[in-house]
């Protein structure tokens, strides 16, 4: 058994990670990629249906994006430009880790610019900039089954999907309205795809749901631990579930972003002192930076970080 001294390479601190020797392009072996590719094609052919696949253990923990990583690894090639975001930001630890993983194992170009990327892997957000038909959006999904909270058994939910028997979901939402006067689901808000399958949009805020509808980019969803892949083809109807007297509505803020001044992006709330004073900033870090650059005289330094 050869245990090579890879540890010698550790501690090398360059900006772009070194390509890891001895692993396949984008880590996964070709056979695994083929299995995943076949699953992706079926997912695209049956929009919103969760295709089971032989998910592999990845060198990142389950729950940390292994489904998204396996999809990205199976689709990217040498000419792709990859962007990875978590909570809308390119610089959160999970996003950096995943970006570095592909930098190390595939040596492909990465970017923070939404418009430059050909493949965008995301956790919990859809970028604010509209995506194009040349892009693929890969979602990391923790629990792919939208009916799971109402029915724990896969054997039962599978039947419900097969027969499009979604009464339980509508009852669930209606009980919510009866109790609170409104649907209180604020993220992972269920959608119906192409008037057929009810689908989990992954835990994006419902603010992002409307962006999924008729999106020009292909949307792929990967749940590694739950071993499911599903998809929404471009220009496909994605409707957030609602009732006539309780139409679907998204979050809004009275505040604007303290950095770029945007009043129509999703805002993160930041507590800035012991008194609990708050400020609001864009969750999409790239969008915020680009907006900030547009306001040349704004109260922001050139790095876009400091006020």
């Amino acid at each position: 058994m050869a245990i090579s001294n890879q540890s010698e390479k550790a501690g090398n601190s360059t900006e772009t990670p070194e390509i890891l020797e001895g692993y396949n392009f984008a880590y996964l072996d070709d056979q695994t990629k083929r299995m995943i590719r076949r699953a992706i094609l079926k997912a695209v052919a049956i929009p919103g249906y969760q295709v089971p696949f032989g998910s592999r253990e990845m060198p990142l923990p389950f729950g940390w994006g292994t489904g998204g990583i396996q999809i990205t690894a199976s689709i990217i090639g040498k000419d792709d430009i990859l962007k990875v975001i978590d909570q809308g930001a390119d610089d959160t630890t999970n996003a950096i880790n995943i970006r570095n993983f592909f930098g190390k194992t595939a040596g492909i170009e990465t970017t923070e610019k939404t418009t430059e990327a050909t493949v965008i892997q995301t956790r919990h957000r859809i970028p604010e900039n509209p995506l194009s038909a040349k892009q693929i959006l890969v979602y990391q999904v923790p629990i792919p089954e939208p009916l799971r909270w109402l029915e724990q058994r896969e054997s039962e939910t599978r039947k419900m999907h097969a027969l499009a028997e979604y009464g339980v979901m509508h009852v669930g939402l209606y009980e919510n309205i009866a109790h609170f006067g409104r649907v209180t689901t604020s993220y992972n808000y269920p959608v119906q795809v192409n008037d057929r399958y009810i689908m989990s949009p992954s835990p994006i805020p419902k603010f992002d749901n409307p962006k999924m509808d008729k999106m020009p980019a292909l949307q792929l969803f990967g749940a590694g631990r739950e071993k499911r892949i599903y998809a929404v083809p471009p220009f496909t109807k994605v409707k957030s579930l609602d009732f006539e007297d309780h139409p679907f509505a998204i979050e809004s803020w009275e505040e604007s972003c303290a950095l770029c001044g945007s009043s129509n992006s999703f805002l993160d709330e930041v507590i800035i002192d012991d008194e609990g004073s708050r400020m609001f900033v864009c969750s999409d870090s790239n969008f915020c930076r680009e907006e900030t650059e547009k306001i040349k005289d704004g109260p922001v330094t050139s790095s876009g970080e400091t006020l």
Binding site: F25, D30, V44, I76, K78, A231
Partner: peptide
């Protein structure tokens, strides 16, 4: 190059199935 050619052909198939 089986690995890279498979990938680029797959992307064409994927685009084709998605569009």
């Amino acid at each position: 190059n089986p690995s890279h050619d498979s990938q680029s052909v797959f992307r064409q198939i994927l685009k084709s199935m998605a569009e």
